[in-house]
Computed example of a mutant assay.
Amino acid sequence: MYYGLFKHVLLGPPVKAYYRPWVEGADNVPAEGGAILASNHLSFSDSIFLPLVLKRKVVFLGKEEYFTGSGVKGYATKAFMEGVGTIPVHRGGGRASEAALRTGMQVVQGGELLGIYPEGTRSPDGRLYRGKTGVARLAIEAGVPIVPVAMIGTDIAQPIGQRVPSRTDIGVRIGPPIDPSEYSARQDDREALRELTDTVMAAIAGLSGQEIADRDAAQYKRELDKAARIAAEDLGPSSAS
């Protein structure tokens, strides 16, 4: 409902004029048909700048809670999410990962582009973390190509915790599509899923130039949070006495 309005009128023109995002390899995005855009994830604004540099609509998946808020804030959040191409994932009655897979399947089988961040969360330190295998499973089951994407500079423009991106060079590099057909009918084979996912992540690293961290990003974030809590406790009232 709001996508065209945001991209072509309200959000797109002023953002492109101010930030002047650049793109390399846009021709690697299929001109039609379903495909997965698998990107690194450095900033919240990744989901804003990627669609702006492409001609086709890009659909992202978001928590249902983004669309169910009340009042002015709830309406504004819903409008913004729809405006940047996000659709809700209904998680009732099943795990979030399965709900996302089903919703993503509907998107690509409907001939649209689906944006996915295989790391599952934003990088806490600029490194590229291990990809989750859902991207491979979806591509194999749907029979659609995976297009590797690298967001450049969004972490500098909008670090975690900063609301409005700063003015800096922001770019998007897009690599050749990866055909999952050699893994056909192996969507339940863990080794096949890991191999294809690692191939995708290696392609993203080649585009972004990021250092590869061979571990789960969400787990690392939990470790950082735990360390921060322990440090805060050590600096509490008892240590000051």
Results as ranks from 00 to 15, higher is better:
residue 132 K to T: 06
residue 135 V to C: 14
residue 136 A to T: 02
residue 136 A to P: 12
residue 139 A to E: 07
residue 140 I to S: 09
residue 141 E to C: 10
residue 143 G to M: 13
residue 144 V to A: 09
residue 144 V to M: 00
residue 145 P to D: 08
residue 146 I to M: 13
residue 147 V to M: 12
residue 148 P to K: 00
residue 148 P to A: 13
residue 150 A to D: 03
residue 151 M to H: 03
residue 152 I to Q: 10
residue 152 I to C: 07
residue 153 G to T: 02
residue 153 G to A: 00
residue 156 I to P: 04
residue 159 P to S: 04
residue 160 I to M: 15
residue 161 G to A: 07
residue 162 Q to N: 05
residue 162 Q to K: 09
residue 162 Q to C: 00
residue 164 V to Q: 13
residue 165 P to M: 10
residue 165 P to A: 04
residue 166 S to I: 11
residue 167 R to P: 06
residue 168 T to I: 05
residue 168 T to E: 07
residue 171 G to A: 09
residue 172 V to E: 06
residue 172 V to R: 01
residue 172 V to D: 12
residue 173 R to V: 02
residue 176 P to A: 08
residue 176 P to H: 01
residue 177 P to D: 08
residue 177 P to I: 03
residue 177 P to T: 06
residue 178 I to Q: 00
residue 180 P to H: 09
residue 182 E to K: 13
residue 182 E to T: 12
residue 183 Y to C: 02
residue 186 R to A: 12
residue 186 R to V: 13
residue 187 Q to G: 01
residue 193 L to C: 10
residue 193 L to T: 03
residue 194 R to L: 15
residue 194 R to D: 15
residue 195 E to T: 14
residue 196 L to S: 13
residue 197 T to K: 08
residue 197 T to R: 15
residue 198 D to Q: 08
residue 199 T to I: 03
residue 201 M to Q: 06
residue 201 M to E: 10
residue 201 M to G: 11
residue 203 A to N: 02
residue 203 A to M: 02
residue 206 G to F: 11
residue 207 L to F: 03
residue 207 L to I: 03
residue 209 G to Q: 06
residue 210 Q to N: 04
residue 212 I to C: 05
residue 214 D to E: 15
residue 214 D to A: 07
residue 215 R to M: 14
residue 219 Q to M: 05
residue 219 Q to G: 10
residue 220 Y to V: 15
residue 220 Y to M: 03
residue 222 R to E: 15
residue 222 R to Q: 15
residue 223 E to D: 14
residue 224 L to R: 02
residue 224 L to D: 13
residue 225 D to C: 00
residue 226 K to Q: 01
residue 227 A to H: 02
residue 228 A to E: 13
